[in-house]
């Protein structure tokens, strides 16, 4: 058994449990802050202090295994301002970024936001966002699961996760339609395959099997 401090309470738990399992094991009926249980969705962020350590660390509750002397709480949510917008009605959303997230300009690059459980260089993408390096930002936030831990550290109340998502969406919308998709949609618009499908509907099970195998051989 290990002795840990869980949600401010000193308690013994078996070895090998994750923070979430330790909570369940000790009678915390936790539903909020539980998601995929695979370390992918960012619902279960925790803040913890390891035995003897000085610096608080952050992680995911479903992937952080408790250790002797650990002091840990769940931090599944942090209030951050999120702009409201209808992106489809904007012609060039990137030019409107400063209107929606004016606080971005106040960043003084203190790097306090670099606590990402996915090891994203948050300060780095906030900087490129400020400087107009939008494609680079979009690239960097691909692994962001919007847990909001970074926002909890920002003395200027910037919410990097929402800024990143805004830029990611804007960049994607700016790209021209992929030629292969455009071509397929064109082909489909002339309905050549619809008559094929009308035939399919009339087939019985055995004929359908033959038909499908024939398509693949063609």
């Amino acid at each position: 058994m290990l002795t840990i401090e869980l949600e401010g309470r000193k308690i013994k738990v078996p070895e090998g449990l994750t923070v979430i399992e330790a909570l369940w094991d000790t009678g915390h009926d936790v539903k909020r802050g539980i998601g995929c249980l695979s370390g992918l969705c960012g619902a279960c962020t925790v803040a913890y202090l390891e035995a003897g350590a000085q610096r608080v660390k952050f992680g995911l509750g479903c992937q952080t295994v408790v250790a002797e002397g650990m002091n840990v709480i769940m931090l599944p949510y942090f209030p951050s301002r999120m702009a409201r917008y209808d992106m489809e009605s904007m012609t060039s959303p990137l030019q409107e970024l400063a209107d929606h997230y004016p606080e971005l300009a106040t960043c003084n690059d203190c790097k306090a936001c670099n606590i990402c459980p996915e090891w994203i260089d948050v300060a780095g993408f906030v900087k490129t966002s400020r400087e107009g390096g939008y494609e680079s930002t979009a690239e960097k936030v691909m692994g962001c699961h919007m847990c909001g831990l970074c926002a909890s550290r920002c003395p200027k109340s910037i919410a990097p996760q929402y800024v990143g998502l805004y830029i990611q969406r804007s960049c994607a919308r700016q790209r021209p339609i992929p030629p292969n998709l455009a071509k397929r949609l064109e082909q489909m618009a002339v309905l050549a395959e619809d008559s094929e499908f009308a035939q399919v509907a009339a087939l019985n099970q055995a004929e359908l099997e033959v038909y499908c195998r024939k398509i693949l051989d063609s």
Binding site: E88, R169, A172, P178, L181, F197, V200
Partner: peptide, 29 residues
């Protein structure tokens, strides 16, 4: 039939709302 015929249209819709599917050097999906 519904699944496969809607497929390319769904891709178009997702691109329109700002989903960034991976592309190759020619800009194709």
């Amino acid at each position: 039939k519904a699944l496969v015929e809607d497929g390319p249209h769904i891709v178009k819709w997702l691109l329109d709302i700002g989903v960034n599917f991976d592309r190759n050097v020619l800009g194709n999906l």
